[in-house]
């Protein structure tokens, strides 16, 4: 390695160059080279980043042509999502993010795009009637996210199952409100009971 770049070695003749004196040409060539190396150091990560992006794009294209698409379980409750499937597939995260900020910062809790509502409708139950985590393998969120290779960062904090009392007609009204159609079901149910 040391012998790989003989030009960079400083010969005895240069050692006599005073610090403030003019510099022998070899030194400035050497410095040019080191500048080039610096530039290389800066450029390498950029190149790597570019390559990774290109690879990502290629993979995405290949993925869309693949046959084995994810099997996404149907929602267990309700018959209509808060928005069209097309919109939800594409924009669910921006809808969630937008409402998340409104709810956390401003305290608005009436909008329909809450993660709790997603879980309430889309979480499945197992054969014994127990709720399954929505991010468990093959479940609503996970099936698509593992297909798209996008990490979900919601359920390390957020509940991945509906609240225990989440049974239509039995729950507290405030729990139903963040989801229009469960609210409607609740009202219809209440009406029927009365």
């Amino acid at each position: 390695m040391a012998c790989g770049r003989p030009k960079l070695r400083v010969g005895p003749s240069q050692r006599e160059g005073g610090f403030t004196d003019s510099v022998p040409a070899t030194v400035s060539r050497m410095e040019n080279q080191s500048m080039r190396i610096t530039a290389l150091i800066v450029c390498l990560p950029l190149c790597a980043f570019g390559a990774a992006t290109a690879q990502g794009l290629l993979l995405q294209r290949a993925g869309s042509q693949a046959e084995n698409r994810p099997v996404i379980p149907k929602a267990s409750k309700g018959d209509q999502c808060v928005a069209d499937t097309e919109i939800m597939r594409k924009d669910h995260m921006s809808l969630l993010n937008h409402q998340r900020d409104e709810t956390v910062i401003e305290g608005i809790r009436s909008e329909p795009y809450s993660l709790v509502s997603c879980v309430n409708c889309h979480a499945q139950t197992d054969t014994s009637g127990q709720a399954i985590r929505i991010d468990a393998e093959g479940q609503f969120c996970e099936s698509c996210h593992s297909y798209a290779a996008v990490k979900i960062d919601c359920f390390t904090c957020h509940a991945a199952k509906p609240a225990a009392m989440e049974v239509i007609g039995n729950a507290e009204p405030h729990l139903m409100r963040d989801n229009p159609h469960t609210l409607v079901s609740y009202l219809l149910n209440k009406e029927a009971n009365e």
């Binding site: 808060v82 409100r177 229009p180």
Partner: peptide
């Protein structure tokens, strides 16, 4: 079709919000 139905339901839902006097529709 489902989306249009959904719009109708959403309308109903927003009506019923007012029935239940939900306060959190306005920001803190």
């Amino acid at each position: 079709r489902r989306f249009l139905q959904g719009l109708g339901l959403a309308g109903m839902a927003s009506m019923s919000y007012s029935l239940l006097e939900v306060k959190a529709k306005t920001p803190a």
